[in-house]
Amino acid sequence: MKFSEIKKLMIDSLGNNPEYGESVRKLEEAGISYDFSEGFAGRVLNKIFSADVVVAKQIELSRYLNLAFSRIAITGVAAIVMLLISIFLMEGDLSFNSIIGISDSQTESIVCLLSGN
């Protein structure tokens, strides 16, 4: 096929006419076709199925990490709740001062304590 014909087919294939499919077919006949090299499917399958073992191990590790994290998080939340309950029972409220342990101290006594006078 001549270059001018191929060029025309290329332009025609982009047109809005219902015959564009015919241009595509003719271009393929002129050698405008693509494929991967021989054994492509085999190489893809080898990559996928040999990688499966590694991926399975990664999934297993992330599952263990998630489990460990959730256990640590639950224990931490439980400890915080118990601490707040004990503060409430001892101090009678949950103000900032009672949490940091200075609820029954007067401002003057703290100043004395810090300045040493």
Partner: peptide
């Protein structure tokens, strides 16, 4: 099923190549 996926690759490899 490795063969089933192999069939998918065979069916669509030219399309992907294009």
């Amino acid at each position: 099923n490795k063969n089933a996926f192999g069939e998918i690759v065979e069916r669509y490899r030219k399309m992907v190549a294009r």
